[in-house]
Amino acid sequence: MHWGLFFEQAPFGGVQYYQWLLRGFAVTVELSVCAWVVAFLAGSVFGIMRTLPHRAFRAAGGFYVAVFRNIPLIAQFFVWYLVVPELLPGSLGRDLKAMDPEIQFFILAVACLGLFTGGRICEQVRSGIQAQSRGQLSAGLALGLTLPQCYRHVIMPNAYRIIMPPMTSEILNMIKNSAVASTIGVIDLSAQANRLLEYSARPYESFIAITLAYVTLNFTVMFLMRLLERKIRVPGSTGGRHV
């Protein structure tokens, strides 16, 4: 083992090797945060649609889940990278490909990882809604609330609380899945580790370092989510203490 490796001069960029890993870490965090925003929004919208009384909405939600949950992540990355730019109308595809590659690949990765994870969040949101007794909705409607009002004030606040634990796992999964983005040219943590390996020929040090980095990131997320869970839970439900 040669841990001094990280403080050696990298062959280009005028930096030391550890700075390669730090930049990769930053990209992984940025990608995860942006993809999570997309996943949460898409998952919520389509998850709610899957529980609505209108058939068209339910079908659209079902279609979204079927497509994004049933295709391997790496295949989805390649579709976004190779196929989507060719299908965009007009000069949009050409403009996209002419963007700064760093930004371009990042946008594609956010879309891909976000919508893939959204497919899974969607099912959790649906189960969070359906886990509640039907009486909740009926009572809301009987009180004179409209359907959107029922969702906004009665159903969703509880649904999100119910699905907090599985959603935490999903965030952790998504952070790990983000490593696949390196296959389309995003220079994230795992891409930097591969580069480090190529130039230093030191597999143990490179991969032990990124393992620790991913574990640290995930532990931090786990810790924060647990705090959040404790803060928002309703006494008497889903693990909250009875009063």
Binding site: D100, P101, E102, T183, G185, A191, R195
Partner: peptide
């Protein structure tokens, strides 16, 4: 040179 570099496998 401000070249935008793409590295592929």
């Amino acid at each position: 040179m401000n070249v935008q570099i793409i590295s592929t496998p």
